[in-house]
Structure formats: C-alpha cells, structure tokens
Design a protein around this nucleic acid. Structure first.
Length: 592
RNA sequence: GCCCUCUUAGCUCAGUGGAUAGAGCAUCCCCCUCCUAAGGGGAGGGUCGCAGGUUCAACUCCUGCAGAGGGCGCCA
C-alpha cells in the first residue's frame, strides 16, 4: 500500500544521485510500536550513493519526500530508519475509498485461469482429518485466487479403481450379507470403509492359518487366496465383467453419497470431477508420445523408462513390462486432459508433502515432453496432521474420522454456547445453525492458521479451543460489532459527512491502518498459496478491534460526530472480518 | 546409503535481510452499575538446535554438524 512512497524514493534517487534503483527493492515496513511513525523506510542501502551517514541520509530523504508529498505530515530518523507520519486526512481519505468500495479486497481480473485440484479421495474409506486439512486448503486457496482476480476451476480426482477398491468389494461380497446404507443406517463411505478394514482383518487371520499349516512367509505373501481373489477381481474389473462392474458401481455410489454429506458439512464444492476409472488409461498416449520424441526409452523387456539422473533425480519406470501404466504415467495423461478441457495458466495440486518427489518428477517429465503447461504445474504441498503419538495410521485405528470430528466440534460448540447462556432468544433452527457455524469455524480456523507447508499437531484430548487465537474469537468480534450496529438508534449519516472535519485518535487510526492492509494480505496469500496469512490477518484485525472496544465506546462516545464516525469504522471492521473469514471458508454469526 | 523438509517461550504457532524476536494456551495479578467477559490490561517465561561464513545489518542467506519427520517400488 506504500507503493507511491517507493516510487517517490526512486525518483529522488534518480534526480539527486543519477542512479536507477528498483522501486520494489526499497524496504518499507510498518513502524514498530515504540517509535513514532506510520511506516518506516530503511535507508541503509542509500548510503552507498548519498555518501552520507545513515542518519543524514534519512534526513535528506525525509525532507525531499515531505516536499514531494503533501500527505506526509512529518518524519523522524532513528539510525538508518526513516519514520514517516501521514496526515489525518490521508488516512481518512484512504478509509473512505475503501469503505465505499463494495468489492474492497477484490483485485481486477488478471485474465488468468487457475485449476485447483483438492480432496482427491480413495473410494474405499471415509474422509479423515488429513483430508480435512487438504479440503480446507484447497477451498480456501481457490477463494483467495478468485479474490486475486483469477478465474478458478475447483476440481477433484477421485481414485475410484484399483486393488484397494477391490478389497472392500470382495470383503462385502464375502461377509456383507447384503448390508446397505439403508439397511444398516450407516453412512455409505463408512459402510464401505468397514469392509475395507474387514478385508485386512480376514486377510491377516488367513495368513496366520496358512503359516500354521506350514506355508513359508514368502508363499503366504505371494499366494494368499484372498489377495489373489482381489487381484482377480481387479482383472475382471478391467475386463469389464458385468457383475463386478455392477458391484463396483453400487458400492461407489454409496461412497459418493457419503462424501457429498461430508463436503456439504465442510461447505465445499467442485466444478469438475475427474474419475481415475476414466483417466487411468490416458497414460498410454503419453508413453507413445514420449517414445516417439525420444524422451522415453523402452527396455528389452518392453518396460518404458525415463532417465532423470542428469537432472539429479532417478531413472523412473513409466510403463510396466506387461504394458499397464503406473501412477505417474496416469498423472501425465490427466494433466493433458485437464489442459485440453480448460487451457488454464496454472494447475495447482493440493497434495501432501510425502509426494514432493513425485511432483518434482511429474513437472520435469512434462517439461521434457515440451508441454507448454508444464511451468504452470504447482504442487501445493502440505504437511501431515500428526497426533500426539505420531502419524495417523488407518490400520492401527488411530485415524481421526472427519465426520466424527465435525460432530464433536458442533457438540462442543453447543455445550460451550449453552454454558455461556448465549442461546436465549434463538429458536431451534437458529441454535443449530449457530452451533454449526461456531464448531466448524473453530475446526477450520485451527487447520488453516498454520503454514500449509508445516506439519501440524492435533491433540484430540485437548480438543480445539474457542478462546484466544481461534476462529470463534474472530466470529465473536464480528457478533459484537453487529450488536452495536443493531443497538444504534441514530439516523446514520453518510461517511463523507462523518469524515469532513474529523480527527481520529490513535486507536481509530490503528484500526483504519489494519483495515487498509486487507488487499495486500490477500495478494500475499495468493502469491504464496498460503491461506494462513489471511487467517493471521483476521486475528490481528479482531484483536485490534477488541482493544479499541475495551477503551472506547461507540454508542456512548462523547460527541455525535464520534458516534457517527465510529459506526462507519466498526461496520467496516465487521465487513472485512466477514470477507477475510469467507476466504477461509468460515462463516461469521451476527449473534453468539 | 542417497535426496527433501523441519528445529523460535513449558506447550501450539507467527515472524518480505533491518530497530529491544511476537501471539495464543498454561501459570500468577487486575478489570463487567457502562455497546456481548467466547473480552480487555499486566507479570513471569528465549543461547531463535549447535558451529562457522557472507553482510553496514542474520531467527531470516550459504556451508558443516546434531536431532526429528518424509521420500527413494514395474504400489497409489
């Protein structure tokens, strides 16, 4: 937001020292609280050509800047730091511009198209906490990129085929007794997940029996009848055997119904769904293309490879000797399909960091194939969600189930809200809506406030708090402001009238400054693909407001001018909080 | 063995190469006759893993070391 200062500094350097500097290299920060100033220019780098000491350099630039820009009221220099104070009117004008702009925060269109792929679940088990982090990140970054002026396509790639799917199908066939979501009351994805676990259980029992009957470990691993049945089922599926396809369709439809419920609860949607059952053969085209270009090589056993050792990576197989394609080859094909469908400028994959190497390889291969979209591939890599005793492991039953977690968050929101006596005057529907909003707000904020790149810890015992640096704290701030606006009895004056001769106090000015940072924060979050920047911003703004609120009354301010101005000010705080939280996929209540 | 990532207060996390490294939780103290106390104010708590280097300036960049995690399959 201080770009105009940077340009001014650039001009001063040019006019006085005949040097060209890059305006973007000029460092301007918010002035630390202990010093006087609205922003601070670091002048150390200018001493090179000013031939003056830092202090004198600061004064020189301060004087020149003040002469150039009427909005600068004063300046002071401490060591190599030039602190600038802007006039009251400057801030008021900025505030008016922001508040009158209904789309404040929204950048003009970039004419860029971005696809964000996220969630991308397997259809053999329900969603867990790791998926939740993925989904919230994907949704949030999509909204942020829209706000940055991009056209965004939200997509997901459903892993609906493969041996793991056959395992749950087989177990259901053997032990299910025709159980359906309708007959059991179980959510579809949980029902299918149950049989995936059942397969593993029975498989282990069978292995033990086989060992007891004298089979070697190797024989057991290779020839376990259940595993062989599952493998046969996969072959049958690929061959399109009707009864297998029918079973597959039925069980997948249960899972999708379950996922839809979870997605709805999470408040996320997709514009485009890709199914691996439709894309898994696309790799073959890619292989043919690569061979023709000489980028890939075929070994004597007919397997196809790419040698990336000169790029510091490995030799990688792309097609098995039996002619079937592997994971990465499917991804090459899918990347092409996505591009053919949308011709996007950037293609973001929200995928865990255990696949960092995979995406490095994928992008490199696409480059070697000469794909123009290769540079647009971006792996939004996020860290695992860990429990106090380490990673979540489905086999050890330590996964935190997404549906259960959401239900617990809402129950927790309910009991806390009731304890605080905040439900008075709400009907049942409003109450449920509030518990949902607060519970989900707490969960979402908890997962989005940390840098995606970093692994994070989730402690079920301590659960998620509603105090301090949390979603509900920010939601509460919004509700407080709404309460003020509801209780106001004055006829509101237009903002322009309110600022005409108004002089802000320090607390008001700080709030205005905080508000004005919003657009910059969105761009930063978009550029770095990091919603945490916005989460932390929303918290800083809410905190600033609460400090203000504790000391200054809005409705009982000393003069009507103060009341009128503050009404506009806090209204804007509420608006920005709401917008920022929306970009995180979090709703804010008007009462709580 | 090779490659990648991480290491900041008791715990969980912030911190575009710039001033005395910040929050929340937890602990202790204070603040509801006053717009919602899911709030505000204050106290204590730090060798920014360790050692070098680059720089006017390093938690931030580079190198080495240690610890933790992840990846190196004709699995996905």
């Amino acid at each position: 937001m201080f770009d105009f200062l940077k340009i001014a500094v650039e001009e001063i350097v040019k006019e006085n020292f005949q040097q060209n500097i890059d305006a973007n290299s000029i460092q301007i920060n918010a002035t630390p609280v202990d010093y006087t100033g609205d922003c601070t220019i670091v002048v150390f780098p200018f001493t090179k050509f000013s031939k003056l000491n830092p202090e004198a350099t600061g004064n020189f630039f301060g004087e020149k800047l003040k002469a150039k820009n009427a909005n600068i009221e004063s300046y002071n220099v401490v060591k190599g730091f030039l602190n600038i104070v802007f006039s009251n009117n400057f801030w008021l004008n900025e505030f008016v511009t922001a508040k009158n702009n209904a789309a404040f925060g929204q950048s003009p269109t970039t004419n860029r198209k971005v696809m964000v792929e996220y969630s991308s679940p397997n259809t053999n088990k329900p969603l867990h906490l790791g998926h939740v982090r993925n989904i919230l990140l994907g949704h949030s970054i999509s909204e942020i990129l829209k706000a940055c002026g991009n056209e965004v396509i939200k997509s997901t790639l459903v892993n609906d085929r493969g041996i793991h799917i056959c395992k749950s199908m087989l177990a259901w066939q053997k032990f299910g007794n025709g159980e359906t979501p309708a007959s059991s009351g179980l959510k579809g994805d949980h029902l299918v997940g149950k049989y995936y676990v059942e397969f593993d259980k029975q498989f282990k029992i069978e292995n033990l029996k086989l060992k007891e009957s004298g089979w070697s470990d190797e024989e057991v691993a290779k020839k376990n009848p259940m595993m062989m049945e599952a493998q046969q089922m996969l072959l049958d599926w690929e061959a399109g055997k009707p009864e297998v396809i029918e079973l597959w369709k039925m069980m997948n439809s249960w899972v999708y119904e379950g996922f839809d419920t979870s997605y709805k609860m999470l408040g996320v949607t997709f514009d485009k769904t890709y199914y691996e059952s439709n894309t898994y053969l696309l790799g073959k085209t890619a292989v043919a293309e690569g061979l023709q270009q000489g980028v890939f090589v075929q070994d004597e056993d007919k397997s196809v490879w790419i040698d990336l050792t000169l790029d510091g990576l490995d030799r990688k197989v792309l097609q098995r000797k039996d002619g079937t394609s592997v994971y990465i080859t499917q991804d090459i094909g899918t990347a092409q399909l996505k591009y053919d469908d949308y011709e996007m400028d950037e293609s973001i994959y929200v995928v865990g960091n255990e696949q960092d190497y995979h995406f490095k390889v994928l992008q490199l291969i696409l480059k070697k194939l000469g794909k123009i979209y290769a540079d647009g591939v971006y792996h939004l890599s996020y860290g695992m969600v860990e429990l106090p005793n380490g990673k979540m492991k489905s086999r050890e039953g330590t996964v935190v189930d997404a549906d259960e977690l959401m239900a617990e968050m809402m129950a927790s929101a309910k009991s806390t809200t009731e304890e605080l006596g905040k439900v008075e005057g709400l009907n049942d529907e409003e109450k449920e809506k509030l518990f949902y909003t607060v519970g989900m707000g707490a969960l979402k904020y908890f997962l989005l406030k940390v840098d995606p790149k970093k692994k994070m810890l989730f402690n079920p015992a301590e659960s998620i708090d509603f105090h301090g640096h949390t979603g509900p704290f920010i939601q509460y701030t919004h509700a407080r402001i709404c309460s003020i606006l509801r209780k106001n009895i004055l006829v509101r004056k237009p903002l322009a009238d309110c600022v005409a001769a108004y002089v802000m106090n320090e607390a008001e000015k700080k709030l205005v400054q905080q508000i004005l940072q919003f657009p910059t924060k969105i761009l930063e979050a978009g550029k770095e693909h990091n919603p945490a920047h916005l989460a932390n911003y929303a918290y800083a703004l809410a905190k600033e407001f609460n400090s203000f609120y504790a000391v200054h009354s809005v409705l009982k301010a000393n003069t009507e001018a103060e009341i009128q101005f503050r009404l506009h000010l806090v209204e804007m705080v509420a608006t920005v909080i709401k917008k920022a939280m929306h970009l995180l996929g979090i709703e804010v209540p008007e009462k709580m």
